[in-house]
Structures are given as structure tokens and as C-alpha cells.
Design a protein around this nucleic acid. Structure first.
Lengths: 349, 349
DNA sequence: ACGGGTCGCTGTATCGTTACAGACGACTCC
DNA sequence: GGAGTCGTCTGTAACGATACAGCGACCCGT
């Protein structure tokens, strides 16, 4: 029966109408009479015509109704990171509301080639990528409407994301107001696996240090401690080492560049019997859900990842529609909780 | 400079070669001399040519390197369900390893039309959909390689997923061997919000009942209890009501169609001071991570969602490659833990 | 009966790419 | 020196659809 796959032409010939009429039967029901339409669709069904080919339509229309999202070089890792999943949730919400599909693009394929070159998309969202990642270059070369989320910063490309420097400075200011003058910044080893790009944490480290020193701390009193990875265990180990320092050298407040690390730090204080915040203040960054229910609840910086995803999706849709957009300013706020308190008196017992 | 967007032709003319040579410069470096290739790419860069248009290439090649995934009618809900995210993780792992992108297709757009008609995909994966969902019809009409995960069962379409009847029967058999003869099946109200399709739970209920009755229980001794929703609180309420029954009518074992409900049931027994499993056995289904660490640990049925996602992706890729595949048998196993034990003696104290 | 409007349908001209079959010179081999 | 081979490059023919202008036919009011 169906020796070759039917096309619009096949159906048109069988129904005795022009190809355009068949196309209209599917896409513009108001452009033809009800009778003709039903007849055409009946013939199409009989021939087993699966409907207009979306690829051909996209070529002609010059749009596909699809937005590409690049999450990390190796896509599957993205699903292991609750933060990225949250961003993705926001993106999906906004895209599907606008009738767009979401294409998840692996950064590179097995051959090292960039799949991005072959992705059929009207626009791109780059999430949390290192700016030296080759996939970023490939994205720019595509010359497609594009928005970045978090990282990287690219000239001429709108970016949604927190001002990491400002957020870290908010924490520094909070701790300075509580009387702290000796700090440790807890970050991940910069030579680490690179699962999460360095620039992001670098901005937080620099933002905190600059604000702390600018606010009265001695440069020598802002130490930097590196955890081996960005996970709770690594945070615990790093803070445990910190607690082993002689009291005189010990900082009175720790700023961890992620909540995960900060929560690990709380674990270490619990083990060591250190009272937080009486003996040591700890603050994090991200306001993940666990931060509100830790013991004690964690002071942190809230920047709404779900909303960032939504905002980025809205922006790229507007770019696709031909509007001009500017990088918006993200909502961001210090969330003071019980893990930070006044600095202990000058000589801790 | 670039009054019109350059194409292969533009670049070919400017470089003084044929269009095919430009195409080969991008896609088949071995088909032309190094010198020519570099010259062509240089000219392309100068003209700002973004590389071959993926849409046109897909039209010509009849493949896009993309697999579509339909998770639920409203895409964003998918990210709220850890089970679906796990399946998606498995799918993404396998697809990206094979150099394919993953298109998340919302079931329907704002106008009620199906976006699936416009999705550019080489194949489709349908996850956990009700078979009466119009999106399923739309998918079938696309006449594209397709695999379903969990639900629905479709004639001629391979399906990956547990045999719910068999899994439930495993639980029934386990409880029968422990001497239980009076059962309650805990499921969700069939007239519920429909967040998760009914057939899935229906199969589990029927599978358990059939195996229990077939194994020696009186039909009247298999009662069905409905929780208002599939969450822990609703499970707790439902089991609390069960515990309020006169001892003579009370079942000695409860089979909950999901672990979530079963965990709620454990909460209820803890509140009521009922000893599990000495006074009441409780079993679940799914082996979610929390099942291993509940108190007592939950007897349940393990069917690996991550592996199901991987298996489904592999299958659809093989279909796309033109191979014939058969619906595989999923690994599934009863995981006996401490929440089930021998039936209490005939007259409970 | 005639101008003007609407309805329903058709024809032509792309959209940008890649497969395939060959053409053409140079090189190798006997 | 002629035949075969290789490496490069070219031309033609799709792939399957949609936008847009336009053309009869029909209905109206006058």
C-alpha cells in the first residue's frame, strides 16, 4: 500500500486538490471549506500520512519552536545537581507556557565534536558554564539569540544570575556589623575536578574579601580554606581542620561559598562541641532548602534559582521575538538565621 | 557588510569553489585538501557564516540526532516528581553517550494543540502517560520509532517498565508465606487528581488481589483502602483508620501500592504504638531511597527507574537505527526488610 | 446587469542543505 | 607510454514544506 512515504504532494494528488490546500487543512482550517478539509484529512488518514514534516516546516518558517539548554559539558551530571534541576524547572515552566519545547544539548559528543552545531533551536540558554569551555565558543558561533544563567559573562549577551560579588559582600557586611574581624572563606580547591566552574566561586571569594577588608578587617585576618570538593563531607573536613587551630589564630566567622560546604561546617562544629554561633559564626550562599532546617538554621544568601530559570527563558523568548532586552538585575537577599551571631569577646576562653 | 545571511552558496562564491566543497569543509574534512579547507573556513569566518544550517541538514539527512521525551501533559510538573527526574537522568545518560540530544516536549500547548506535531525528533519516549491522554494518540500518529516507559501499554510499541501485576504478586506471595491471610491494599482514590495515571496503581491492586486470593486468602479478607492522595500524610491517615477497626476485622498485613503510602503507614503505626512487624506487616512498592532507612526498614519491590530510563533510551536508539527490538523483561525483585514478619497468632491479644 | 467584496483554492518561488555520480589532472606501475 | 588509481572538486537532483499573490466564482445592492 504505502510503498513510499506519503508527502503533501501524494495526499494532494490523491485528494484531487493542490498541495497548499492539504497544508492548509492541517495548519489553517479557516482557509478552506469544512467539506474539503474533511475530505483531505480522510484521504491523508487512508494513505497513512503522518502530517506535515516538522523539519521541512522549520526550514521554510525559519523557526522550530525549540530553545536549547546547555547545562554542563556532560549532560547527565546536570541531574545530579539539585540547583541545576531547579533552574531547569524554571526554564521548562516558562518555555512550555509559551508553547516551546526544550532541547537539552550535551556539551560535546563522544568524538569531542560539539553537538551544539547540529542542534535545531531558535535560541540558547547557557547555564553555569565556564567561559573557557569550548561549548561556549560553539554557542557564540551559532549566532542565535542567547542568554546565560549564572555563568559565563559574555559581551553583548544578556545574563541572568546573582551578582556574586555583591551577595558575598552582603555576608561580609552582616558579619562586620556583628563585630567579627577575623574571617575564613571556605571554598573548593581551584584545581578540583571542575564539576562546577571556578569563576563563580572566585567572584564570591573576591567579593567577600574585598568587602571584609574594605570594612575594617586586616587583610591578613581573612584566610582562605579549600575543601577538596563541593560537598558536605569535604566542608566538614575543612572546618574540622580550622577548629584544630590555636584559638588565637582561629577566625570568629566562616563564610562558605556554598550552603553545602556551610552545612558540612556545621557538622564539624557539632562533632567538636563548638557552639554556633556563640563561639563561631558560619554563613553560606544559595539558600538551598536544607539551609532553613539545619541546626542551627543557616545564615545564607537567597537568590532564587527557579526564578532565574524563568527569567532566562522569558528573556530568550523575547530575543527570539526580535525585541531588545537588557541584563536584568536579580533579586538577592541576605537571609540572616541563627548560625551567625555577635563575635565572641576578644579573648575566647 | 552582511546585508543578507550567508549560506553555503555565499561562501562558495566568495571562496571560488563549489557549494559542495564548502559543505565538505565542515562535514568531511578528509574529502578536500587541507589548503582548500583552511581557505574556505577563513572566507566563511570573514563573512560571518555560522556553519551549515542544522534544519536544512536534517531535512536532507532525514535525521536530527534528537530524541523526544514526553513526561507529562504539563512539562513542569515532571521536575517536581523525583521518580520522573530519575528516569530522565537515565535517559539523558544513554542519549548523550550516543551523541543525541534530548527534546522535552510539553504534552499540549496553551491553545490545546499538541506541540508533539511540531517536534523535530528521530524517535519518541513516552513516560508514565495515561493511555487515554490525547498526547499518546498524537505520538502514535507521528509514525516515529517509539518506546513507552511504565505506561501506557500500546500494541506494537516496546515498553520498558515493571510488570506491576507480577511485582504486586511477589509481595502477596511473600506475605502468604509468612502466614498472613487477612490483607488490606492501600491505594489512592481512583477519582483523584490524576497526577499519576490510574492504570499503574490498578495493576498493582489487581495483581496483589489475584495472587492473594489465588494463594489461599478469602476474597472477603482482601480489603481495599484508599488514601486521598499519593503522599505520606494521606498514607498515615488511611492506615490510622485501619488501626481503629476492631481487632477481629483488622488485616494482619498491608500492601501499599507506593512506598510513599507505606511510609505514611509506618508513621501511623508509630503514633498508635503498634509494633511492626509483630502486630502488623507493611510492604510498599518502588524501593525509593527512603525505604531502606525507615524505621523499621520497609519491605518493598525494587524496580530501578534509572535503569529503566537507560534501557528505554537504548531501545529507541536501536529502533531509530532500524533494528527490531522486543519489549525487554525488566529486572524486578522483592526486597524483604524488617517491616514484614510472620502473621500474629490467630487471636491477637 | 454591473462594480465590488468575499470565499476557496491554486501556482510559483523559495528555505539551505547533502548524496551521488562523475570529471579531470596527476601519479604509479609495469 | 598506456592503463589504472587516487585525490579533489563540481553539478544535478532531491529533501518536504509554506508565503504570497492571484484568479475564478459567487453574492449583493443598486
Amino acid at each position: 500500500m504505502a510503498t513510499e512515504r506519503p508527502t503533501l504532494d501524494t495526499v494532494a494528488a490523491a485528494a484531487g486538490v493542490s498541495r497548499m490546500t492539504v497544508s492548509n487543512a492541517y495548519n489553517r482550517p479557516d482557509q478552506l471549506s469544512l467539506g474539503t478539509r474533511q475530505r483531505v484529512l480522510a484521504v491523508a488518514a487512508e494513505l497513512g500520512y503522518p502530517g506535515p514534516d516538522p523539519t521541512a516546516a522549520s526550514l521554510r518558517l525559519r523557526r522550530s519552536g525549540t530553545v536549547g539548554v546547555v547545562l554542563t559539558e556532560r549532560l547527565p551530571y546536570a541531574f545530579a545537581d539539585p540547583g541545576l534541576v531547579t533552574i531547569l524547572h524554571g526554564i521548562a515552566t516558562e518555555l512550555s507556557a509559551a508553547g516551546n519545547a526544550l532541547l537539552l544539548v550535551p556539551g560535546r559528543d563522544a568524538d569531542g565534536g560539539s553537538l551544539l552545531r547540529h542542534a535545531i533551536v531558535d535560541g540558547l540558554l547557557l547555564c553555569a558554564l565556564d567561559e573557557r569551555d569550548p561549548v561556549v565558543t560553539a554557542a557564540v558561533e551559532r549566532q542565535v539569540p542567547m542568554v546565560t544563567v549564572g555563568q559565563p559573562h559574555l559581551r553583548g549577551v544578556p545574563r541572568v544570575g546573582p551578582d556574586n560579588r555583591r551577595g558575598a559582600a552582603l555576608v561580609a557586611q552582616h558579619l562586620l556589623e556583628l563585630g567579627h574581624r577575623r574571617f575564613a572563606i571556605l571554598t573548593t580547591a581551584s584545581a578540583g575536578a571542575g564539576e562546577i566552574p571556578r569563576p563563580l566561586f572566585g567572584e564570591r571569594v573576591e567579593g567577600f574579601r574585598a568587602a571584609a577588608v574594605g570594612g575594617g578587617a586586616a587583610a591578613a585576618d581573612v584566610m582562605i580554606v579549600c575543601a577538596s570538593e563541593n560537598n558536605r563531607d569535604a566542608g566538614r573536613h575543612a572546618v574540622a581542620q580550622l577548629l584544630a587551630l590555636p584559638a588565637a589564630q582561629r577566625p570568629s566567622a566562616v563564610f562558605a561559598v556554598t550552603d553545602i560546604l556551610a552545612l558540612g561546617g556545621l557538622d564539624a562544629t557539632a562533632v567538636a562541641g563548638i557552639d554556633v554561633p556563640a563561639q563561631l559564626s558560619i554563613a553560606g550562599f544559595d539558600d538551598v532548602s536544607a539551609a532553613a532546617s539545619s541546626s542551627p538554621p543557616l545564615t545564607t544568601v537567597d537568590h532564587d534559582l527557579y526564578e532565574q530559570g524563568r527569567a532566562a527563558a522569558r528573556l530568550v523568548l523575547r530575543l527570539i521575538a526580535g525585541e531588545r532586552v537588557r541584563t536584568p538585575r536579580s533579586r538577592m537577599a541576605l537571609v540572616p538565621r541563627a548560625s551567625t551571631g555577635p563575635a565572641p569577646s576578644r579573648s575566647p576562653r
